[in-house]
Design a protein around this nucleic acid. Structure first.
Length: 260
DNA sequence: ATGTCGTAACGTTTACGA
């Protein structure tokens, strides 16, 4: 089972690049972030015509997540539990039946949190505490769980080309990294680091200042796997070359394969 | 280089978020 995550930075703007990538990469499941669209305006037919089931959790203008899946989706749930007043569309989960395992798949768009300190940073840390609580709940099922998306977290200095630039940024502050580790320490495996070590691996390059041409990137899109999912992991790769295409997102896809 | 991009709206330009 191939599962991809891709922050597309606007479905309208990616109306050509996204289907083109999908046709080449052929993921069984694609988790999308920043669709920046209400559910009614999401162009689901483009994906349904390619054999994908489409589940969206959108809002006007900003944020928004979606799941595309060639396999049937069951028990779809929208919104991260823990704050009924939170109106930002950043979380969706569903169960996918593989050939020999059911996988609970969660797509997330974690708050950016800048400027820090401030109310946006407080919201980020509170959201991460809710994520930790949900992750702990999911572990009790003792079934394969995948939580993937744009975490807006640079886990370590080796995950940035210029870590000094990010030292006081919400993506890299010690409190942000500690909140991310707190989730990992529940027993989750970060799929990319389970298979590839060392610096120079990024999933985001800013549009500004020629960041892509200078390879001035950061690694902020992650797959976290429960122990039962980690047992099934067979590959994890970043589709870096996508960033060099016409009208790219500022993020590139990352994907895993599971023997599920 | 205050350097870019995407979205919304009292829209043809500005504000905001990233």
């Amino acid at each position: 089972m191939k599962i991809a995550s891709f922050n597309i930075n606007g479905i309208k703007a990616r109306i050509e690049a996204l289907p083109a990538w999908l046709d080449e990469a052929e993921p069984d499941v694609a988790l999308l972030q920043e669709i920046k669209s209400i559910d009614e305006n999401f162009p689901r037919e483009i994906f349904e015509d390619r054999g994908y089931n489409v589940e969206t959790h959108g809002q006007k203008g900003f944020n928004g997540v979606a799941i595309l899946s060639r396999l049937p989706l069951e028990d779809v749930s929208r919104g991260l539990p823990g704050d009924p007043d939170d109106e930002q569309a950043r979380w969706i989960e569903a169960t996918v039946m593989g050939d020999h395992a059911a996988v609970r798949i969660c797509g997330l768009y974690l708050p950016n949190g800048n400027p820090a300190p401030g109310p946006k940073y407080d919201y980020k840390l509170a959201w991460m505490e809710r994520l930790r609580a949900r992750a702990q709940e999911l572990l009790t099922t003792e079934e394969p769980v995948v939580m993937a998306g744009d975490y807006n977290i640079i886990p370590q200095n080796e995950d940035a080309a210029r870590p000094e630039v990010w030292a006081r940024d919400a993506l890299a502050l010690p409190e942000s990294r500690a909140a991310f580790r707190r989730i990992l320490n529940l027993g989750f495996t970060e799929a990319f680091r389970a298979r590839t070590q060392g610096p120079g691996h990024y999933t985001f390059w800013d549009y500004q200042a020629g960041a892509w041409n200078k390879n001035d990137g950061i690694r902020i899109d992650h797959f976290l796997l429960s122990p039962q999912a980690a047992d099934l992991l067979t590959d994890c790769q970043i589709d870096k070359e996508i960033r060099a295409r016409e009208k790219p997102s500022d993020h590139v896809p990352i994907w895993i394969t599971l023997d599920a």
